[in-house]
Design a protein around this nucleic acid. Structure first.
Lengths: 192, 192
DNA sequence: GCGAGATATTTTCCAAGTAAATTATATGCT
DNA sequence: AGCATATAATTTACTTGGAAAATATCTCGC
């Protein structure tokens, strides 16, 4: 039987280049929503919705696709994020630091780590100086898993993005980075 | 205690990517993540993560900001989405149609509508032909609320996006729309 | 007209997340 | 030293969302 991941990649492949002379054959769902609003409230400027509505929808669809891939491997996305954070920092993290790295609450990290520990993917070391603290790290099994999954995940993402040319992708990354800097500056203080 | 030292390390980490000439003086959080991965796996192409990581993070921050605004009005975002869908279609919707419009499960719609009905924002009309079906619409109170909230929401979004110039916003909307079309094509059918 | 199956909605049950409380420990002030 | 306060991690209590079951009704073919 063929896996969901393979099916996803096949589906994404089939989508690549579904344009005529650079213009989309069909408009995206947000365009329809914008048109509906325009009919009801012609006086309102819907510019922000054209950006943010699409951003949210793209995010949701991309997330669903990669959740499906991770699901085949028996991992949830938040668990994957924890393994990823531990891998990319290259050493140990405390639960609270891990919460910041993965933008999650402490309680959520506690629960996820408990599962990952019982799966033998993460191990815990107690701090000698400060007995409130513990240090989490990947086991060999955990490192092997994330090192196998990351390329799979990226390969799926490549196909998901392949409807856009490389230059367009770079443009997107650049604009989103610029936006993200201003959002972090504005909201980071307020939120976390 | 670990706090002071760890905080210094964290601060140093945050500064690590800053450069003085032409390059970004402040970078977004995803840039730091990419740098960490690059150190661990220099052979992997992280291009997709530069796009998708930022996309997801922008989406999360924007959502938090507008959730906060809606929270002040006593609404959740999913509830707002339901009111918005009913407003923009300009008439009635069945629960199942509403579920499709708001990308939610039928069960979630049932629960949300129950709350909105008890708040006097949504009303229900039974179909005479087909007694399985009902038709939902906004009450006057519901329409007034969404008509007051939508401009507030858009005004907030304008300020959130104001770090980008208008041309850059249009570029973003365009690129995201192109991406969204390809993602929806058959991925939407396959997954959602 | 009457089953068999299809469809619309709701309900049930469970998984997962958070805020707030709790526990345990460390730090700072006097 | 000793107590008030701060911090790290976990636990608890509660909320929300979805998948699947349940309910109610319709439609089609005979």
């Amino acid at each position: 039987m063929i896996g969901t991941g393979a099916r996803l990649i096949a589906a994404a492949d089939r989508l690549a280049g579904q344009t005529i002379e650079g213009k989309p054959v069909v408009e995206d769902v947000v365009a329809g929503v914008l048109r509906q609003w325009q009919r009801v409230h012609p006086e309102i400027d819907l510019g922000p919705m054209a950006v943010i509505g699409r951003l949210n929808r793209c995010s949701a669809l991309l997330r669903q696709a990669s959740d499906a891939l991770l699901g085949e491997e028996g991992l949830t996305r938040p668990e994957f994020d924890i393994l990823g954070a531990l891998r990319r920092v290259g050493g140990e993290l405390t639960p609270s630091r891990l919460a910041k790295e993965t933008f999650a609450s402490g309680a959520a990290v506690t629960k996820r780590v408990k599962v990952l520990e019982s799966d033998g993917l993460v191990s815990r070391r107690l701090d000698e100086r400060d007995r409130r603290v513990c240090h989490l790290s990947l086991t060999d099994k955990g490192r092997e898993l994330i090192d196998r999954l990351l390329p799979e995940q990226l390969a799926l993402e490549v196909t998901l993005l392949s409807g856009l040319g490389d230059d367009r992708q770079a443009e997107l990354a650049d604009a989103l980075g610029e936006l993200l800097v201003t959002l972090e500056g504005r909201l980071g203080g307020l939120i976390g």
